[in-house]
Design a protein around this nucleic acid. Sequence first.
DNA 1: AATTATTTTTAAGTATACTTAAATATTTTA
DNA 2: TAAAATATTTAAGTATACTTAAAAATAATT
Lengths: 218, 218
Amino acid sequence: MSVAIENFVKAIYKNNMHDIKDTKPGNIAKKLGISNAAATDMAKKLAAKELLNYEKYQELQLTEKGTKMALNVIRKHRLWEALLFKMFDMSLHDIHREAELLEHQTSDLLAEKISEYLGHPKFDPHGDPIPNALGEITTKNTSISLSEAKEGQTYMISRLMSDDKEFFEFCAQNQIKYRNTLTVSKQFVNNKMTQILIGSNTIVLNEDFTKIIYVDEN
Amino acid sequence: MSVAIENFVKAIYKNNMHDIKDTKPGNIAKKLGISNAAATDMAKKLAAKELLNYEKYQELQLTEKGTKMALNVIRKHRLWEALLFKMFDMSLHDIHREAELLEHQTSDLLAEKISEYLGHPKFDPHGDPIPNALGEITTKNTSISLSEAKEGQTYMISRLMSDDKEFFEFCAQNQIKYRNTLTVSKQFVNNKMTQILIGSNTIVLNEDFTKIIYVDEN
DNA sequence: AATTATTTTTAAGTATACTTAAATATTTTA
DNA sequence: TAAAATATTTAAGTATACTTAAAAATAATT
């Protein structure tokens, strides 16, 4: 299966996971940076391959086969991120960019070798879960977003759910890193902002960021 | 530049290095598993991109730009081989197959990180030289092929110049490995065969193999 | 509910990287 | 050196993954 197909299936999977947005060709097209027409075309093509169910004007739904494919690609992506992060001094955004390409050129055998080498990790450096070779995911449902966190409470960062370069640059500059701890010093409820204490810094984050930083009680 | 272009340029480079065969579209086509017509097409296309010089019915010659591109891809291939070989228990042929795909999806930055991690190695696990970031190669001109080796002399294996699966399976089964030592016990000059002592085994190799196994005096 | 706006789909067209078949040139060999 | 064999090139055609523009359907707004 081609890179275009793998990316399409992955985009649908992620859209169904993270967003409330409906999974129609237009939304997928926007994520992939292609035209709506191209997305409709691809949807039909993948329906013929039994990777998804397609009916005109309806939402796209991955079949079990399509879901397996998406999880396999995501597994490889996150294993690469974990490996590159461990071995090399590279930013979260850089390892994401490399993994985005490497994920499509990695045999199941190599993925397994990487997983083994890392001790079969369940999470990547963003805190995103790594599916196992069967496509099974360990979910961590104790995590909450910073926007829901309690004032005065100390938390451990469990997930940075983004692939925006600027966000990761901000993270790198402010010790916002998977498994670091922070304390919520103030919730500005009306302004939807959150003030945190991390290391020796006090930072005020707006909702754009507090909704994608997930934490666990410590 | 596309994978097809990188592979084309790489095939020309290798053809000019290793073989006496003339570098015409047909030979390149054979190596890449495409039709002669496709190779002629590509040659014209790459000439327009100034990656090679093309004149009807003449040999294909890489320009400096084309050579740089080939060396950059080869560098990434061999760095991946060195990394995978060091980290994982995989056969020489398997790491070759993975590297063949990964080489096209590796940024210069990542290549440099891999090189750094490995201590900027000059040779990969086949003994093939790894070009540096500028495309410079350290050549080792003291090596000779086993077919030219002296009876009674002990050598160190310096290069296994092949990408044939069966050859590498044979190597794996017989301790024929980069930097292992062997002794030439007999040269069967008329039959073009060579008998070697490696570990506790005695093996007779025909010319197909003795021409691609390179050794250094010890 | 009707109009407007937005999305989706269809249709026609493009670039890349191939293919096969036929024409042309080169190379081999007798 | 002329004929035969081989290689290269040209021409026409295909699949993939897109594009833009227009038509059709759905969703939003008044």
